[in-house]
Design a protein around this nucleic acid. Structure first.
Lengths: 179, 179
DNA sequence: ACCTGAACACCGTTCAAGT
DNA sequence: ACCTGAACACCGTTCAAGT
């Protein structure tokens, strides 16, 4: 029986969870699937391509950015945050894909037009959309690394609940946008 | 004449500028210095160690976070941003060092106490300090990548002045903090 | 003290050849 | 159609040995 594209993506996400982003290699995916490394390239154009497909899976349940009503942004952001933290190193993966693809422009401009739709002046909407994305992804990435440090025993001092801190940051940002 | 620790750091920063973060390798640094790769390990414990030293150079002129007066934060943030963009891929480097070192805790808690000093409620100060760092580093990283895309000819549509957008984001964030 | 030489255990990717 | 085998051009790091 043949290996499928989905098998590769699923195995990639599994290994991301158990070994982390830095140790996610094509060769390891291949050997996990019991196949030669070169076999992957029949189903996948490159590692970048695979990472992009994995990121797509992680954020596949992200609802469209809510336009018109600013009060619906915090729950949307919280949802985004929870999707990112569902996989270990999920933020790092999504972030790395976002920065190397036009995907960022897609989501970024989606947020931007949503904000304009909600009455934010256009010259602020671009800045706000970038700030929002960076806060969300940066927080997730930061959480990933802190969790990693704890796992390695180099735990820094106690760290407050991440979701509460995240909500607080979003609240601050939104307040600045509307006042 | 011998190679020095500073030579390695300087060459590393040069190669970062001309080849980017992904192509910054120990072997390339060594060959640029006319030396064997293994020779670097007499002066430097590991690549991580070297990256940390490079990041230190990049942000060496960053003034301490201004406590007490919130109005001094925007120029401080702008200074930080300009230091990050002085080197190509400087944000990526600093960001990667920040997330793997206790350095983040150092700068993070410095910002946190500065905010408390300025009258921000303590339960907001932690969230705000993280948000501020993520906005600054995320923006720089994003700029790096956009510049890179332009350099490779895959330029997306025209992109407004980055510093103005950056200042706008900081302004939004501060307004949310004080209102 | 400082570097070379050689090795170890890896990478991503390509491509002819097999089935 | 799908995979193997073998190679190419790389990595970071270690360590005995040279000077």
């Amino acid at each position: 029986m043949s290996i499928t594209h989905d098998d590769i993506v699923t195995t990639g996400l599994d290994l991301l969870d158990s070994y982390g982003f830095g140790d996610l290699t094509m060769r390891r995916i291949a050997s996990t699937l019991g196949v030669q490394p070169s076999a992957l390239y029949w189903h996948v154009a490159s590692k970048q391509d695979l990472l992009r497909a994995m990121a797509d899976v992680i954020i596949t349940d992200l609802p469209p950015f809510p336009g018109g009503d600013l009060s619906r942004i915090p729950p949307w952001a919280a949802r985004f945050h929870s999707l990112l933290t569902r996989y270990r190193h999920g933020s790092e993966l999504v972030w790395s894909v976002l920065t190397t693809h036009t995907w960022a422009d897609g989501l970024g401009s989606q947020i931007e037009t949503g904000l304009i739709d909600a009455g934010i002046p256009p010259h602020q909407a671009l800045a706000a959309s970038r700030g929002l994305l960076h806060v969300i992804l940066g927080h997730g990435f930061d959480d990933d690394n802190r969790q990693e440090s704890k796992r390695l025993g180099l735990a820094s001092s106690t760290w407050p609940n991440s979701s509460a801190t995240f909500d607080e940051i979003i609240a601050i940002f939104l307040k600045g946008l509307t006042s």
